[in-house]
Design a protein around this nucleic acid. Structure first.
Length: 246
DNA sequence: CACCAGGCCGTGC
DNA sequence: GCACGGCATGGT
């Protein structure tokens, strides 16, 4: 199965990564720069091993998903290897608040501008994503000047309520969804993305415009529970598949 | 000039 | 409970 690293890192679940001229990918994570050319590179580094969820049996899950129906089989076969990245809670929260009614290119630009303005430089030209404390000096006017637009007050509310992110572990999925949505600018779709891509909650099933199209056209009488216990993984495959169709 | 982008908020019914 | 318009910005 093909590596699919570009889709994993640049496909919309993380905005930390950039593609280098040699085809490898780099990101500032964990207070340093990481560089990776293929998924197996993550096996030899403890931080990346965890970040790329290397302990989970994705092949077995893919086989189970593909055997469920013909649509899922097509989605799995057309997508290649996937991963649910285990990102920092705060970084994921701001990233997906930025993602609403937005596109990947502009989200990445906003992510990088926030990093350069409020994060700190670990090597020349490469900045950390700022912590809640580092962002606490931001005003709504500052954030709008960076291009966050109507999301600026949402970011301020997230800064104020950042401790909520440490109260998610141990909650049921529904409780966690509800708690995240106490932050302004976080609705069902953003909350489920945060739970999947940062808290490893595989019950999440983000319903964006693309997934609504998939459900309407191919699963008109079903909901997320149909895909249990592979809601998040099935969603990733279906999302990747429907987007590749255009 | 429209319309869209991995939606959500506030309002009205 | 559900439907609707508005929302900042940049690209096509």
């Amino acid at each position: 199965m093909k590596d699919n690293l570009r889709e994993i890192l640049l496909g919309g679940q993380s905005f930390s990564w950039r593609e280098e001229e040699d085809g490898s990918f780099s990101a500032v994570l964990n207070e340093r720069v990481y560089r990776i050319a293929k998924l197996e590179d993550a096996l030899s580094d403890p931080f990346l091993y965890d970040y790329f969820d290397m302990g989970y049996d994705y092949d077995a899950a893919a086989a189970a998903i593909a055997s469920k129906d013909d649509i899922l089989r097509k989605a799995v076969e057309s997508t290649g290897t996937i991963r649910l990245l285990k990102q920092d809670h705060w970084t994921a929260t701001i990233s997906f608040i930025l993602s609403q009614n937005n596109n990947i290119k502009r989200i990445t630009g906003l992510y990088n501008r926030l990093s350069e303005k409020y994060g700190h430089e670990v090597v020349p030209g490469r900045f950390t994503f700022p912590t809640p404390m580092e962002m606490s000096r931001a005003t709504e006017e500052d954030l709008r000047a960076l291009g966050t637009g109507f999301r600026a007050p949402f970011i301020l509310d997230a800064i104020a309520k950042a401790p909520v992110l440490d109260e998610i572990d141990g909650l049921t999925f529904d409780e966690a969804m509800e708690k995240l949505q106490s932050i302004k600018g976080i609705g069902p779709k953003v909350a489920s993305c945060i739970l999947i891509f940062s808290y490893q909650r595989r019950e999440g099933f983000p319903m964006d415009v693309w997934m609504k199209k998939v459900m309407r056209e191919y699963y008109p009488d079903k909901d997320a529970s149909y895909f249990h216990p592979y809601e998040a993984l099935s969603q990733q495959y279906l999302f990747s598949w429907i987007r590749s169709l255009g």
